[in-house]
């Protein structure tokens, strides 16, 4: 039995609460992070990702408290991202109870942050989030700010660079597919997964369980991340794992 492919539900967080909304609009409160995380854990989530979508200095304390509360009751890995600007932010999140911290925009502005954080806390604790948009056949560019700001960086070249800087994992989001529910950008996922020796988490576009299967079998992803299909209880994580297992993918069984 090999290593299982992971299913990672992602929760958007604002001021320490789970929120739902599309493209930062019409955000509404969607519950207590502890309760939602516990439910995902019981369904067999292999890991849970939290994205602080406001990432404002004013609400940072609430995020730390939320992570601490979740970590007291949910005993699977917790990845936290959003607004990580300095090694001190990484430390604060890890000390609050995060197992991995994801770095996005700040790592583009200052790649040394990735190197310093990985050297200090180990590659296994540092995830680099890459938001990419297709700019031509077989070409993707890294964007920031929810896909609004181009960086001029080639996504595959940047992925290789962050691996070299010491990142332990890539969280790869297709901004073309994010929210579209038409499936992962499989060509992007495959290109990055094949280019790297570190694991790649595919993200952006999941609308069906078949999309999760495709992310692994066609995209070559080591883990698949989805938000809305689990938020809105369209599918449980157990159903997702069972579908993946039917497709011949190694998963961690949590229903027997």
């Amino acid at each position: 039995m090999p290593l299982a492919k992971r299913i990672i539900p992602c929760l958007d967080i604002a001021a320490g609460r789970v929120v739902k909304g599309v493209n930062f609009l019409n955000l509404r409160d969607a519950g207590d992070p502890v309760e939602v995380a516990k439910r995902y854990g019981e369904q067999g989530a292999d890991e849970i990702a939290f994205l602080d979508i406001t990432a404002s200095v004013e609400t940072r304390g609430l995020l730390y408290q939320m992570i601490a509360d979740v970590a007291e009751q949910v005993f699977i890995p917790l990845t936290v991202g959003g607004g990580v600007r300095a090694v001190d932010d990484v430390r604060a999140l890890l000390n609050a109870g995060a197992d991995k911290v994801s770095i996005n925009t700040a790592g583009i502005k200052n790649p040394q942050l990735i190197r310093d954080a990985a050297a200090r806390y180990g590659a296994q604790a540092i995830v680099v989030a890459i938001d990419a948009k297709q700019t031509g056949p077989g070409r993707w560019e890294v964007f920031t700010h929810g896909g609004r700001h181009p960086t001029g960086l080639d996504a595959i070249a940047w992925a290789r660079e962050v691996e070299r800087l010491g990142a332990g994992e890539i969280l790869l989001t297709s901004m073309d597919r994010d929210g579209a529910k038409t499936g992962f950008d499989l060509a992007l996922t495959r290109a990055v997964a094949d280019a790297l020796t570190i694991p790649v988490i595919a993200s952006g576009g999941v609308g069906t369980l078949e999309h999760l299967v495709d992310g692994v079998l066609e995209g070559g992803a080591d883990a698949v991340l989805a938000a809305s299909i689990f938020h809105y209880s369209e599918f449980t994580i157990t159903e997702a794992k069972q579908r993946m297992q039917q497709a011949g993918i190694e998963v961690r069984e949590s229903w027997s």
Partner: peptide, 22 residues
């Protein structure tokens, strides 16, 4: 060993070893 990171089925395995193994 980066040179030995394929399994018997020829699937490439990643480093770090990250996730749930039996």
């Amino acid at each position: 060993d980066p040179a030995k990171m394929t399994d018997a089925q020829g699937q490439r395995q990643k480093v770090p070893h990250m996730g749930w193994s039996p």
